[in-house]
Design a protein around this nucleic acid. Sequence first.
RNA 1: GGAGAGGUGGCCGAGUGGUCGAAGGCGCUUGCCUGCUAAGCAAGUGUGGGGGUUACCCCACCGAGGGUUCGAAUCCCUCCCUCUCCGCCA
Length: 424
Amino acid sequence: MIDIKLLRQNPEIFIEALKKRNASTELVDEILKIDAEWRKLTTEINNLKAERNNLSKLVAKAKAEKDEEKAKELIERSKKIGEEIKKIEEKQKELEEKIMEIALNIPNIPADDVPVGKDETENVEIRRWGEPKKFDFEPKAHWDLGPDLGLLDFERAAKLSGSRFTVMYGYFARLERALIQFMLDVHTKEHGYTEVWVPQLVKREAMLWTGKLPKFEEDAYNTTQDDMFLIPTAEVPLVALHAQEILSEKELPKKYTAYSACFRREAGSYGKDVRGMIRQHQFDKVELVWITTPERSSEDLEQLTRDAERILQLLELPYRVITLCTGDLGFTAAKTYDIEVWLPSYNAYKEISSCSNTTDFQTRRSNIRFRGKDNKLHFAHALNGSGLAVGRTLVAIIENYQNPDGSITIPKVLVPYMGIERIP
RNA sequence: GGAGAGGUGGCCGAGUGGUCGAAGGCGCUUGCCUGCUAAGCAAGUGUGGGGGUUACCCCACCGAGGGUUCGAAUCCCUCCCUCUCCGCCA
């Protein structure tokens, strides 16, 4: 949620932000116009209410003095004012709803150090780690490798659930589980995160608080009977944890990690990543969320990103980190680093984690505040990142660690979790 | 699904139609004091919105939304949430 006061005082900030994002700026003008009208009505209402409050006091006084005549007259006047207030309030409410509707559709302001660009082609690479492996044989894509080993089954998955679902058997299923365990262990034992186990169905409000609604309703699975949503990421329950709360500055930053399944309808991505298990309706993810202060949030994003990178380093998978340019930045994010892992099947780096500073965008919607050293209340900042997407990590391992005979070497750090050194 | 209880400020908790934005306690801030961080004493301390050049003024908020009333934390309705018991169930 944007700060309407800031928009009122410095609309140019928002116009600039929307331009940088390659988005239309007319919402700003529209909201300003409605807001001016709203303030006019608000002042009118406030004055009328003040008058009515005064009359009410006089009524009480008149009644105490047993001056029924006077009380009656005052009540008449007060009644008329009440009717007038009601009329104006109806108009005010309409305007309020319009303002809300527009405000909820204005994205976060990009941070100053985010490169300006029109789309993903202008994202900026920050650093690389490791070298893409050179194979002295033709490496298979996971969508061939998995079925050949009898460990990935897209056909039966489609039978049960349709496209963009996968069934895994045996060692692959175990590898998925091992990765979850491994990632959680690293983040809790080495990076100081608190492990959280969260609901994977949330109320509409939780989706709204975290910026997933109302703009992206078509992307989410919704249970029609109870209006619950299947979470698209554990970021939703983790950020919503502290909604409507006032935290003390001492307890910040809060660093949470959670495993969850994630559910996405992938509406509008029909042509993308149709083969294999890169883009699924259901996938596992270990999520990282920080609730922190405005002073340190941009520094904290660096740390969060490093924490996610650490998993790839331990797995010895080559990757690079890019900064999303303003045109590619997500709705809630002020700044985002994507971590991309090397995938032989794509012959390219492919997103495996997205680490964002949402500044006060989500905390404003969720009303997450903290009492600062100045003893005043401030909105906290919220960061989130994948640490990592488990399914894509599994794909990266099987593709990068495959051998000429079709077997797969297990990365050293996973051997204790798998109990074997190679598949099969 | 059925029956009951309840949701008040950072926290606990009182308050059943007018002077309640809300007693009291805890916490917090500041000052004083005591040979130490403890105790004690005093004062201050909610949030959001609108207006004004400052001092400041006004409005709203006691789970949410409606209603009754001149006037609602207090009465009525709807909804949400929490708890207890019963039923069902992994």
